[in-house]
Design a protein around this nucleic acid. Sequence first.
DNA 1: CGGTAAGTTGAATCTAGTCAAGAAACGTGG
DNA 2: CCACGTTTCTTGACTAGATTCAACTTACCG
Lengths: 299, 299
Amino acid sequence: MTAAMSHYDALDSGSMDQGTARAQDHEGANLSVRELTRLLHIDYPGEAWLVQTAFALRRVREGEALVRAGDKFHSLYVVRSGCFKTVYTDLSGSEQVLGFPMCGDLMGADGIDSGRYSSTAVSLETSEVVIVPLASLARLAYECPSLEALLYRVLSRELVRVQNMAWALGTLGAEGRVAAFLLSLSARLGALGYSRCSFNLRMTRQEMGSYLGLKLETVSRALSALNTAGIIQVHQRSIDIVDAAALRGVIDPAARVPASIASHLGLTPPRSGVDKDRRSRKPGSQFPCGPVWRQLAAA
Amino acid sequence: MTAAMSHYDALDSGSMDQGTARAQDHEGANLSVRELTRLLHIDYPGEAWLVQTAFALRRVREGEALVRAGDKFHSLYVVRSGCFKTVYTDLSGSEQVLGFPMCGDLMGADGIDSGRYSSTAVSLETSEVVIVPLASLARLAYECPSLEALLYRVLSRELVRVQNMAWALGTLGAEGRVAAFLLSLSARLGALGYSRCSFNLRMTRQEMGSYLGLKLETVSRALSALNTAGIIQVHQRSIDIVDAAALRGVIDPAARVPASIASHLGLTPPRSGVDKDRRSRKPGSQFPCGPVWRQLAAA
DNA sequence: CGGTAAGTTGAATCTAGTCAAGAAACGTGG
DNA sequence: CCACGTTTCTTGACTAGATTCAACTTACCG
């Protein structure tokens, strides 16, 4: 769509508004503050109905870049549907995936400080995002003080997610990372109302590996191993989590998960069995997951 | 801040104020908004002199924890002097270092969303922090709209730093990580007015390794290798960077550094390019931005 | 000055990466 | 609907790099 490249025709002073207008034309839909807060899982304060602000949408087709690293910062984006990947790209063309933002996740926050996006956001499937100009958000916060913490909270959430990612990369081995990734996806999809134990991946092994700091072959092997162990069932991109507890056990063969993370994985209660063999399998169990772990695979 | 959680009033319902008072008693000094912005390298708007807000200081002795993971969130902290480490600690007691906040760096932001700090901040030497209650900051932003972006920017900066860390962990080998760490420290110290090529580490090999996702022996070996190669000179914790260019070359033997990061390392010539397809990785559109690399070792 | 913590170095082991081949899925056009 | 080429995924054998175990040296602190 035409709106796609709008940010290129000018290092825009007003192209933000143009994009907004155009998105309205195409989509014919704006999002209210209430809907935005719901999307972000942020409490909606009573007085917010006073606020008139509305947010435009934008549709992004598969493979299309929403923003590129280096682009001048203009807006934040909240995924409303679909799935993205955010990447760093180096001179030789290879890329490192930093996250897979999905519905409710924030994108573009890395551009606030420097004034330029530091990563590129590419759609993995046809998706829809809410355009949230920083200025609108600031005005919103001013007019409705109870919404002031909104962006603070979303940014903090993002920060914790990346921090958890750094923890995983620095601590876990290949199988642990893959297991954590699957659990994270599972929890996030569950929170969105989809099945927690059966879903389809939207990304290639290559992209998964890039995100997890592994090669695609290693990802494939890890998945195969988990499959063979009966913990999950893999067929290409279709994943079935057969034994979530065992999957968590793979992450943490010996209680090496920080309590702050573990609590969100449901394995905080005193663990006795130091179960050294990863292949060991226990009867399936259900798992409640909080907001930390699910963020591992986010934006 | 929000009227959040109250489960753990154990540690302190009013200890924030107590701490503040105590700091005042001991230090007898508060920090003005101007001084805070200077510390954070954020522009100080003209009208800000109107604002009365002042921030208390707190002294933290070596080895003392400023905040602990799980503590109820009350304030943000900005390091004014000294050096910290932020860590995740697991049940077995081993810890993963997430950052080494130094002068001007923010701590505690990971607690905003959940209402609890997710990491523990421990002082590596006697240090001083500015106590920045979120509520004060919110009021400040309200009274002085031009300061509204202050926290946004600081959080965004933090986010980029952790993102770069994730990149390094996922991409670089042992020597590359150590080299990047040293360059990062070098740049940060330089920005603070200290020598860029000669400094003392404040952390043990163990802590460095934990931060970089390596074992202490590996860190030691990497340092020795760089020393032998004549790129740096190491004697215990004293580091001299002999050949900064070579050090950058260690990170990136083959231009594998994303331009957005590389530019901050001084190894990016100008470039341009357009990239359209998701799977095809040719060039990318990247280039010079703000403080990226120096944040690698931060908070 | 002695004891402890921190750092260095070597050798063996193990994990993930690399190279390479083949199988399965996907899309396109006949 | 099927054949074809392309992409993605899987698997195996081998290699490189980091971890582990262990001995030893050096700094630091009372």
